[in-house]
Design a protein around this nucleic acid. Structure first.
Lengths: 210, 210, 210, 210
DNA sequence: CATGAATGAGAGTTCATTCAT
DNA sequence: AATGAATGAACTCTCATTCAT
C-alpha cells in the first residue's frame, strides 16, 4: 500500500519540522512530541527513521550544512579571481542564510555551545565550509592580492557577522520601536552581503589586484 | 549543604555556578538540581532567592553584561581619540570574554535564539554595550577618520568574531589533532584582539587620522 | 503496573480510584502519585488520558453527576403524580448516594468551596439535577398540591440533609461510643429517605391531593 | 519593648487571616506562607504561636464554633416556648453564617470530609450546637407541640440548607446571568431564615401549640 | 510502515517545618 | 517576640524512549 515515495515524504516532513523547531528553541528546548505533531506523523516513526532525538538533530545539521556547501561550490565555479570567489562565497552564504534563517540560529547555537550535541565526525560539515574560504584566502595571499590573512578569524568575521545580523532581525525590531538607522532594520540581504564583502576586501587588500 | 546563614555568600555561590552551567549547556540544558548541587546549596534556596529558573538566568545574564559594560566604560576613559577608544573597546571586550568564556557562549546563545529566554527589558544590557561602540564610531565618522560606517554590522563583526573564536577554542582543538596554523589554535588573547583591531581599523579607515 | 494496552480499562481504573480518593481527601488532599498507585497505572498515563489533575477531577465529578441524573430520570418515569415524582427523586438520590458515598462528600466539598476547582460549564451537571426537582415542585404547585415553594431552598434541604447524613456516618460513629438514638446511627437508607420524604411533603402540603 | 497587647494582636491577625483563607480554599489549599503574608507576620511566628498548621486550623474551627454557640445560647434566653427557641436557633445561626460566610464553607468541608483534619476531641464544638437544637426539639416533643422528631436529621436539614444556600451565593450568581426566581439570588438573610423556620415548624407540627 | 499505549526517570516548583540569630 | 535562612520531602507535570498490535 504505502510505497517508497510516502516514506521519503514522511522523512522529509520530519526533517523540515525539526529544522524549524530546533532553530527556534534549541536541541533541549524541543520535544520529540512536538516535532511529531508539527510533522503530522506518529511519534514512533521518528524513532523508526532516525533512531533517536540526537541522531535526528545531527541529520538536521548535516542537511543544512551539506546544502549550503553544495550551493557555494556550485556558484563559485563562475568566479575567475580570488576576489570574485570571496564575493560569491559571501553572497551565497548570505543568501542561503537569509532564506533559511534557521541556519544562522543553529550555527550560532552549535558553535557557541562547543557543539556539545554533535559527535566529532560531524564537524566535517563545518570544516568543509571553512576550507572553501580558507583556500580562497590562501590563493589570494599567494597572488599578493590579499594581505595578512588569518583564515579562521576572517571566517568567523564573515559568518559571525552574517549569522548575528540575520538571527537578530526580530530581536532588533522588538527592541527599537522607532526607525533607527543604527540597527539597520530595513537593510536587506543585498545591502548586508555587499557591505560585508566591501569591508572584508578593504581589510585584506594587498598590493596586487585580482 | 552547608548551613552558614550568610545570604550574600549563598546567593553568590548560586550565581557563579549558574553562570558556568548555563554557558556550557544553555538554559534548557541545565537543571535546577544540578545548579544547586554545584553551588552546594539546597535547591529550594534557588527559588527563595531568585523565584524561578528563568529569573535566575536573567540575573546571570544581567550580571555578566553589567560587569563587562562597566569595565569598558572604565578603561575607555584613558583614550583620547576615537581610534584609541575603538582599540580599548576591542581589547577590553576581548580580555573580559577570554577570562570569562561563559560570556561568549551565553551571548551567542541568547542572540542566536532571539533572546527567547529574556524579557524585553533585558536587552538594555546588550544595547548599552552596542551604544558605547556606536558612539565611538559615529564620533570617528564625524571627525573623518572612520568612513562608511554601519554601526550594527561593525558591532556584530567585532563581537561575533571574538565570541566565536573564544567559544570554539575547545572545539577547534578537538577537531584538529595536528597543529594547524589555519585555525590559530595557539593564538592568544593579545593576538586575537590586536588582529581584530588592526583589521577593523583598516576596514574603516577614512581620510583623516585620529 | 500492568501492561494490558486496553485503554478503556486503564481509563476506568483511573477514574474509579480518583473518585474514591478525591471524595475522601478532596482535590488538594490527593496526589496524582497516589491515584496512579491505587489504579495500578503508570503516573504518566493519567496525564496521557486526562491532560492534568484538574481535568481528571472534572471528569470524576461529571461522571458521578451524569450517573445520578440518568438514574433519576429513568426511575421517575414510573411516577404519575408530582408527589410520587418527589418520592422517587428523594429515594433514588438517597439510594445512589448511600451506595456511592463519594458523591455526598464531593457534592458538599464542591458546593461548599464555591466550585473553585470546576470550570463554569460544569455546573450544568448540578443544575440539571436541580431542574428535575424544580419542575416537579412547580408542577405540584400549579396543581395545588404543593404550597409556598422556593425550589432552590427545598433542593438544598433535600440534598443537604441526605448528603450530610451519609457523609457523617463514620464521624457520628466515631464520636458517640454508646448507642445514641439522637444521632440515628443505626438508621438505614430506607429510614432516611422515607423520613425526609414524609417531612418534605408535610412541609409543602397544599389543599389539593396529588 | 513588645508587650502582651502586641502578641495578642499578632495572634488575632493570624487567626483572622487563616479563617478567611481556609474557608476559601480548604486546609490543603492554603499554604502557611500565604497565611503569614496575609496576616503580615513572619511565618515562624505561626509555628511559635500555634505549633503547626493543623493546630492553627483547629483553633480556627474552634473559634468559629465557640462564637456561634455562645451567640445562640445568649439569644435563646429571650425565648419562652420551644417554638420560639427553634425560631431563635435558626435566626441566630442564619444571621451568624450570613455575616461570617466562612463558617458555612468550613462546616460543609469539615462535615463532608468526615472531619479528617480534626482530632476527635474537636467534635465537641459541633456536638454542642447539635445538642442545643436536640434539647429544644425533645422538649417540644414532650410538650406535644413537635411531632415525630429525629433530631440529627432535623439538624442537618437546618444547617445543611442554610450553609448550602449561603456558600453557593456566588456560585448561583455566576451560573445564572438573568434574574432567576428559582435560585432565589435576591433572597436576603431574613427571607432565608423565616422560610426555613416556617417550613420546619410546619413539618414538625404536633397537636399542641407552644 | 504505522499507531496508540505504556514506562521510568527527571524536570521545575512548592510546602510544612526548623534553625540560628 | 521576631526574623530570614535553610531543609528535605513531596508535588504536578514532561520527556525520551519502547512495546504490542
Amino acid at each position: 500500500m504505502t510505497n517508497e515515495r510516502d516514506s521519503i515524504k514522511t522523512k522529509q516532513r520530519i526533517i523540515v519540522s525539526a529544522i524549524e523547531l530546533f532553530a527556534k528553541d534549541g536541541f533541549d528546548g524541543v520535544s520529540v512530541d512536538l516535532i511529531a505533531k508539527k510533522a503530522d506523523v506518529n511519534k514512533a516513526m521518528i524513532y523508526y527513521y532516525f533512531k533517536n532525538k540526537a541522531k535526528l538533530y545531527e541529520k538536521v545539521i548535516k542537511t543544512l550544512l551539506d546544502n549550503i556547501y553544495e550551493q557555494i561550490v556550485l556558484d563559485i565555479k563562475k568566479a575567475k579571481k580570488p576576489r570574485d570567489e570571496l564575493k560569491i562565497f559571501i553572497e551565497t552564504f548570505c543568501n542561503f542564510a537569509w532564506n533559511n534563517p534557521y541556519l544562522s540560529s543553529l550555527m550560532l547555537a552549535e558553535l557557541g555551545s562547543g557543539a556539545k550535541n554533535l559527535p566529532s565526525d560531524m564537524f566535517v560539515g563545518l570544516k568543509k565550509i571553512f576550507l572553501l574560504l580558507s583556500n580562497i584566502l590562501k590563493k589570494g595571499e599567494e597572488k599578493g592580492c590579499f594581505f595578512d590573512v588569518k583564515p579562521i578569524i576572517i571566517h568567523f568575521m564573515i559568518i559571525g557577522t552574517i549569522n548575528l545580523f540575520i538571527s537578530t532581525k526580530d530581536l532588533r525590531n522588538r527592541v527599537v520601536q522607532k526607525i533607527d538607522a543604527d540597527v539597520c532594520n530595513e537593510c536587506d540581504e543585498k545591502e548586508l552581503s555587499s557591505y560585508v564583502y566591501k569591508k572584508i576586501v578593504k581589510m585584506l587588500k594587498g598590493e596586487q589586484p585580482c
